[in-house]
Amino acid sequence: MSSPRLILPSDVELAGQDSRLLSVLNKQGRYFRVRRGIYTEASGWEALDPASQYGLRAAAFQLTTKQQPVFCHASAALLWGLWILGKPEKLHVLTEERDGGRSRGDIARHIGLLNQGVVQCGPFLLTDKLTTSVQLITRLKFEQAVAVCDSSLRTPRHAAGGNIFTPTGTADPFHEPSWKNDEPQGPALLKSELMSAAEDLPSRSARNRAVAVIEFASGLSGSLGESFSRVRMAQLGFSTPELQHKFVLRDGNNAFVDFWFKEARRAGEFDGREKYLRHDWGGGTSTQDRIIEEKIREDHIRAQGVGFVRWTWAEMMNLDRFERLLRQAGIPQK
């Protein structure tokens, strides 16, 4: 689905009409004001998901700047498909001006270099995957930083497709990137790359924090919820699980579980809604059929003398509840 067209006063004037018509249409509910002086059709705006609305806001902001902005932090993370909690409210951009680093309105400015570690994605400039990951790792809470790092290390399920990142000035400006990504985009980073970048951080505390996150991170994590779950398990002192453990089913097919506790012969699974609703999960079958297939898969694994414990986002985010759930399932604590 392509984004709705942004409309400026100059567009209306070129059509021989008074630009004040935009304000009138906005008051009538027919147009939506994306940014001061920039509008789009209300019906088109309302049809967009939150991530795509955010992307249209970024495009509108870009039209108001003399120099093309470089998006960074959480804004760049959306284009890279890195796992961040929720959608950012502000647009995050780089600035080289020490006195221009203040956040104003919905724009958060961060000090950085505009000529290093920058790539192009369609009409947008943004910090590269390594720079974006390190920026977030050093500023987010530990569990959120781990999720970002996990996703930066993860190899995309699909080698082709998705967003296209190129050196600045070489991208097709008409390529419309997606701000809503179900999986990380671009080649996976290496831990050695992240460690090298961490060594260049300006303060010891930032370096120590980044190293702790990178050492804990794993490219085998399958989702934001799985990353959070793993941090919660460590905080509660549970045994470190093996990620994406393989089982061979009766029909000869392979099945992987999110977490495997070998000592207890227990498989753990994070049940996020996106697992069942994602369009490319389950080969395009209906949600009902996916759930049935998941039940059959679990039964085949249980037949091998394996116990199962499942949890939801709400259960995992409540530490007391999550600890009780895992202990009752027989997961050993250190």
Rank of each mutant, 00 (worst) to 15 (best):
R5T: 05
L8A: 09
P9C: 05
S10A: 15
E13I: 05
G16M: 03
D18W: 09
S19K: 15
S19N: 03
R20Q: 10
N26H: 14
G29C: 03
R33S: 07
V34H: 06
T40H: 12
A42T: 03
S43A: 13
A47H: 12
Q53M: 07
G55Q: 08
L56P: 04
Q62R: 13
H73Q: 05
H73E: 02
H73A: 04
S75A: 12
L79S: 10
W83P: 07
I84G: 14
L85V: 05
K90S: 07
D99W: 12
R102M: 00
G105A: 01
I111M: 14
I111S: 11
L114S: 11
Q120D: 11
P123G: 01
L125P: 07
T131E: 08
V134R: 14
Q135F: 11
I137H: 11
L140W: 08
A147N: 06
R157E: 03
H158F: 14
N163E: 06
I164E: 03
F165W: 12
T166F: 05
A171G: 15
F174D: 08
E176L: 15
S178P: 02
D182K: 14
Q185H: 01
G186L: 06
A188V: 02
K191G: 00
S196T: 08
A198V: 08
E199I: 02
D200A: 15
S203T: 15
N208C: 09
R209C: 06
G225K: 02
S227W: 03
S229M: 09
M233C: 13
M233N: 08
M233Y: 13
L243F: 15
H245V: 00
F247V: 03
R250K: 12
R250L: 07
R250V: 00
D251W: 04
G252K: 00
N254W: 07
F256K: 01
K262P: 00
E263G: 14
R273C: 01
W281N: 15
G282V: 02
T285L: 12
I292V: 08
H300V: 00
A303R: 03
G307T: 06
G307K: 09
V309N: 01
W311T: 00
T312I: 01
N318D: 11
D320A: 12
A329V: 02
G330P: 01
I331L: 07
Q333P: 02
